[in-house]
Amino acid sequence: MKTRNPRHFNALARGLHWLMAAMILSMLFIGAGMMTSVTHRTELIDLHRPLGIAILVLAVVRLINRLRHAPPPLPASVPPLQALAAKASHVVLYALMLALPLIGWALLSAGGYPVVLFKGVNLPAILPASPELYAWLRDAHGWLARLLFLVVIAHLSAALLHGLVYRDGVFSSMAKGDGHRG
């Protein structure tokens, strides 16, 4: 990991953050739509599967980038308990960005369904077909998606608090660069 203390996240981290924020919000709404719509369920599933795999790939890239480039430190004005909550929420976000697509892939495998990226390109099954495992993974995927929704709401709330109320640079560290490439 680079040891410098940047004021802003590097360009790749910022780009991936905002791209994945849009993808994850879309995925949450697509997932909710899949559960409530009979008419558009097939089309939503066809969007959900490749988008989930794209999120998985980008999460791996993002994690590697995060390990290679130190994030900017939180301002000294952030209380220790709040700093701990910020670090914990990031760990949970990364875990969910990796776990949800993998569990989705696993549940489709256990259900005997193909993971279609696009017409003619399917991912291999990562688990054998098993109705019991499929049911368990489907429940786990749903509960973890709900957790992701709550963590995203908390993350967004904290970002807005720092950007609009505290104005302490936490929000701007992800919103804009500092003039050098990183």
Rank of each mutant, 00 (worst) to 15 (best):
M1H: 12
M1E: 07
K2M: 14
F9C: 06
G15M: 07
G15N: 03
L19Y: 05
A21M: 13
M23D: 04
I24C: 09
I24F: 12
M27T: 05
L28K: 01
F29L: 15
F29Y: 09
F29R: 00
I30K: 03
I30Q: 04
A32V: 12
S37H: 08
S37F: 13
T42E: 15
D46Q: 13
L47F: 15
R49M: 13
L51P: 08
L58V: 05
A59E: 04
V60C: 10
R68P: 03
H69Q: 06
H69K: 00
P75T: 02
S77V: 13
S77F: 11
V78T: 11
Q82A: 14
A85T: 03
A88N: 03
S89G: 08
H90W: 11
V91A: 15
V92H: 03
A95F: 14
L96E: 03
L96C: 08
L98A: 11
P101G: 07
I103M: 09
W105E: 02
L108P: 00
G112I: 11
Y113G: 01
P114E: 10
F118N: 00
V121G: 03
V121H: 08
N122V: 11
N122Q: 09
N122S: 13
N122G: 00
N122L: 06
L123H: 06
A125V: 05
S130Y: 12
L133V: 15
L133Y: 02
H141F: 06
H141K: 01
G142L: 03
W143E: 01
L144A: 13
A145Q: 05
L148C: 08
A154G: 14
A158C: 09
A158N: 04
A159S: 13
H162F: 12
G163F: 14
G163R: 04
Y166I: 02
G169K: 03
S172M: 09
K176N: 00
G177A: 05
D178R: 02
D178S: 08
H180E: 14
R181S: 13
